[in-house]
Every structure is written in structure tokens, then in C-alpha cells.
Amino acid sequence: MNEEIRKLYRTAYGLRKDAVDMVYHARTGHAAPCLSEADILTALYFHVMNLDPANPHWADRDRFVLSKGHASPLYYAVLARRGYFPPEDLMEYRGLNTKLQGHPDMKKCPGVDFTTGSLGNGLAGALGMALIGKKDKKDYRVFAVCGDGELDEGIIWEAATYAGNEHLGRLIVFVDNNGLQSGGAVEKIQDLGDIAARFEACKWHAQTIDGHDMEAILDAVAEAEKVTDKPSVIVAKTIKGKGVSFMEGQYLWHMKAPNDEQYAIACEELERKVKEYE
């Protein structure tokens, strides 16, 4: 493993720790949904995307939309560690008069490109940004992360169809395919069948990868960039709660804060992982 990859893993586990800290401190929030998306957001923000944290509205920056907006703590941690605001502010999460609302708010939080919270709509927002990029012949890319349960929403497929027909090569969407939604297993609630094939039917380029394999994530983005005449979906097989043993694969941790004892275990496990990648 090269040093860059090692560093990305280290960062991802550190960010997971931040997210768990925030949910524990606020005593409310979505912990497990943060842990599955951690490697994807880390790869994007700490390796892939062209950004200027000192200038969050830089016109040529790459855009990012967290369509599964409930997983905001990890996103806020990413933005803080990337320099958009001081990491000390993370403990404001879900407090009164804070930029760190329960769901990402583009008017309140520096670095947030798009407000989300009502599932399904983020992808359509990303589509709008990508269309403007195409119209204005801009080079910026638009990244989005959707939940797999979120794919139940009809608007996802309305947006996907439009994006396919517009040949939006600069739109790259990850599906955080952790197999769980709020009430249980995605497969049991609404079996989505072959997610990659569904997007392919909408004229997308599709890849399926291990969403906790940093090299696979970077390779998939590189592969997606080569495809200039189609939007890309990267179906990332992930584990909800990844990195905290008692949260892994447990839908009941979708929205729940750890108690003192659980928090201590989570910290211990995540810190051990950070050390492992030093």
C-alpha cells in the first residue's frame, strides 16, 4: 500500500471518529450512515476534487451533493478537516443557531454546495449543476452520494433518465450500497434488483466496487473520467456502521446515539484503526 492510500485510510477513520464524537455529543443523529460513506467522501475530498477551501464559492470548483443528507456529521467533519471551518465547531452539530444543521444547509455551512434532507432530490440538484457545467463548457465535475434505500424514490429515476439522455460525462454518482435503510434490509423492503443494470438502462456508465477499498474507489473515479459521453454511477458495496463493531450491519443504528459505554468502545476501535494506518 503506498503512502497516499495509507493516509486516506487514516483520514477516513479519523473522520469516522469525528462523526461518532458529534453524534455522541449531540445525543442525536445518524451515526451508522456516516460510517459507510466515509471512505468515499475521504477519497473525493482529500484526493480527487479540485477545491479551494479558502474560497468555497470558487466558480470552477468541483461540486459535491450529499443526497443522503442525514449522514451529515461525517460530511461536516470532512469540510472541517479540509479547512472550510475550524474543527472545534464540529461540536455545534444540531445545536441552536449553528451552521451544522441536522441536514446540510448550503446557506449556513461553508463548503456545502447543495441543501439536502428530503431524500431523492439531491441527485436532481446535482443533475442541474452538471447541466449548467455542460452549457457553459466548464470543466468542473459534479459528484453525488445517494443511499441505496434512497433509490426507492421515483425522482431518482427521473433524474437518472434525464442525465443519461444529456450525456453528462462530468456527473459521477456513488451509491452507498450498504444494504440497509431506516426500517431494515433494502432487499426486503424494496428489492432494487441489479442497481448497476438499472442505471445502464438509463444510458449511464456503471461500475460496482468494494466501497471500503480506497484504491478501488480512486480507480473507479479514474475510469469514470475516461467516459466523457455518459454520466457514471459507482455502486459501492459498503457496510452500514463500518469500523464500529456493534453498529456494523445493524439497521437499528440508523439513527441513534451511543451511550457512554458504547461510545468508549467506538472510540477505542476507531482510534486503533487510525494507528494501524500510521
Binding site: 443528507g69 434532507g117 428530503s118
Partner: peptide, 8 residues
């Protein structure tokens, strides 16, 4: 919806 904020 309390902590979930405005969208909820």
C-alpha cells in the same frame, strides 16, 4: 422533528 431541522 426537533434536531432533524427545517427539512423535517
Amino acid at each position: 422533528g426537533g434536531y432533524d431541522g427545517s427539512t423535517h
